[in-house]
Computed example of a mutant assay.
Amino acid sequence: MTVVTLPQALSFRLNRQHLTKPAADALIAARTLIGAQAQVHSAAILQLRARSEAGAADGDIDRALYQDRTLVKLWAQRSTLHLMQADDLPMILGLRREHVQGYHNWYAKEGLSADQVETLVTAVVQALEQGAHSRMDLSRRLVPILGEWARPMLEHSWGGIIKLACALGHVCHGPAEKACGEGAREALFVHLGQWLGHSLTVPDGRTAMADLARRYLAVYGPATPADFKKFVGFYAGPAQQAFADLGKEIVPVTLSGKKAFVLEHDLPALLAAEPVEGQINVLGLFDPYLLAHADTGQYLEDRFRPAIYRVAGWISPVILRQGRVVATWTHSRVAGPNGTGAWAVQVTPLERVYKKELPAITRGLKRLSGGLPVSVTGV
C-alpha cells in the first residue's frame, strides 16, 4: 500500500476543508463540511466564518436560513443539530431514517407504545402544517387533545418526538426563535416540505450511506470505517458496508502504520499535499475538524484530550499549527472603540505558542469575530 505521512494527511484535510484557501461563501463551506454542527447556533456560524472569504456575516447566514432557505437547520449526523445545505437533505434524511428503529426502542423504554408514537408524530405534523410552533406551543395545543401521556415527549429538551418526525423528513427548525419570558427563547419548528416549498425524494439508507462516505472521504480522508462511524454516529456494520459499496472508487493507504482509505482520484492530491510553513488556523466550538476521526492522536497529543473533549460532549475552540492542536482559547465580549463591541481573548497554550504567531492568531480570531477588534492574552 502507498505510505502517506501524517503531515500530508493533515495538509490534505486543511486544503479540502477550506482552511488553507477559504470558500467563496458560507453555503459552499457548509456543503463541503457536510453541515456545520449547530447544537450551539453561534458555534456553527464560527465554523462557517473560519472557512469563508472575509468570514461569514450573520446577516448572510440568516438570509440563507430564513429567506432563501438554501441552508436548513435540523438533526443530522450524530443526531446533532446542523446547518445543512438544502441540496444535501435527501442524503441526510436517507441516513436519518436508518435511526428510526433506535428512536422507537427509546420511546418503548420510556413507556410509549408504537401506536402512541405514531399518534404523536401525526399530531405534530398536522400542527406544523398550520404554522411554526415551539415545543411548548405543541404541548399546549396537543396535550389537551391527546392526554398527559404526550407531554414528556413533546416538551423533551433533547427533541423527544420531534426528532423522530425530523428523521422521517417532516420537520426542521424554522424562523429563528420566539421569546418566552424573562429573556429566554424557544426554538421554532416548521413542516419541512412547506418550508422548502417542495417535497424531497429520499434515497434508501444504504445508498445514502455510500454517498455520504464518498463526500466524507473527499474532505476528511484518508480515513477508516471506524472514523466514518464516529462522524455519522451510526453502527459499525453500515459504516463498513458503505466503504465496501464504494468498491474501486477507494484505495487503501498506510497512515501512521495503519490502513486507511482515500478516494482513488484524490490520491495524487494527497501525495502532493505539503504543509504550509507556520500555517495557523483558529477554530471555534464543536468544529468538524475535531469530530471526524476516531484516532484523535493524529492531530492532538493524548494527554491534552481532556482540554478539548470535555464533559457533556463539549468541544473546545482550538488553534491549529499545520493541522495539529497547539492551544485552546476563550473569549468574552467587551466594549470596543467608539462604542462598538470587541473580543477579549484568552489563549491557553498546550504546546509552545510563539510571539511571532500572534498576528496570524489575531487575524483568525478577527475573522471569527465578524471583524470586531480583538485583544489577545496568553501568547
Results as ranks from 00 to 15, higher is better:
9 A>E: 07
10 L>W: 08
17 Q>F: 09
20 T>L: 12
21 K>S: 13
31 R>E: 12
39 Q>Y: 04
41 H>A: 15
46 L>Q: 06
47 Q>P: 03
47 Q>N: 11
56 A>H: 04
58 D>P: 02
58 D>L: 12
64 A>E: 15
68 D>C: 05
74 L>F: 09
78 R>T: 10
82 H>Y: 13
88 D>T: 12
92 I>Q: 02
97 R>Q: 15
98 E>S: 15
98 E>A: 14
100 V>A: 13
101 Q>M: 15
105 N>L: 14
106 W>G: 04
108 A>F: 00
112 L>N: 07
113 S>W: 02
125 V>A: 10
137 D>P: 07
140 R>V: 05
144 P>Q: 12
146 L>Q: 05
148 E>V: 15
153 M>N: 07
157 S>N: 05
160 G>M: 06
164 L>K: 04
167 A>T: 03
168 L>C: 02
169 G>N: 04
187 A>M: 09
188 L>T: 11
189 F>R: 01
190 V>M: 02
192 L>C: 03
196 L>G: 10
198 H>F: 07
201 T>Q: 14
204 D>F: 06
204 D>Y: 02
206 R>W: 00
211 D>N: 12
214 R>W: 01
215 R>D: 05
215 R>G: 13
220 Y>E: 01
237 G>L: 12
238 P>T: 10
238 P>F: 06
238 P>C: 07
242 A>G: 03
250 I>Q: 06
252 P>D: 11
267 L>A: 08
273 A>M: 05
273 A>P: 08
276 V>I: 14
290 L>S: 04
293 H>Q: 12
296 T>E: 07
302 D>M: 12
308 I>F: 08
312 A>T: 11
314 W>Y: 07
314 W>G: 02
317 P>A: 09
323 G>K: 03
327 A>F: 01
328 T>Y: 04
329 W>D: 08
335 A>E: 12
340 T>Y: 00
341 G>A: 11
341 G>S: 07
348 T>H: 03
350 L>W: 04
351 E>D: 13
352 R>D: 10
353 V>A: 09
357 E>Q: 15
364 G>M: 06
368 L>Q: 00
374 V>S: 05
377 T>K: 14
379 V>L: 15
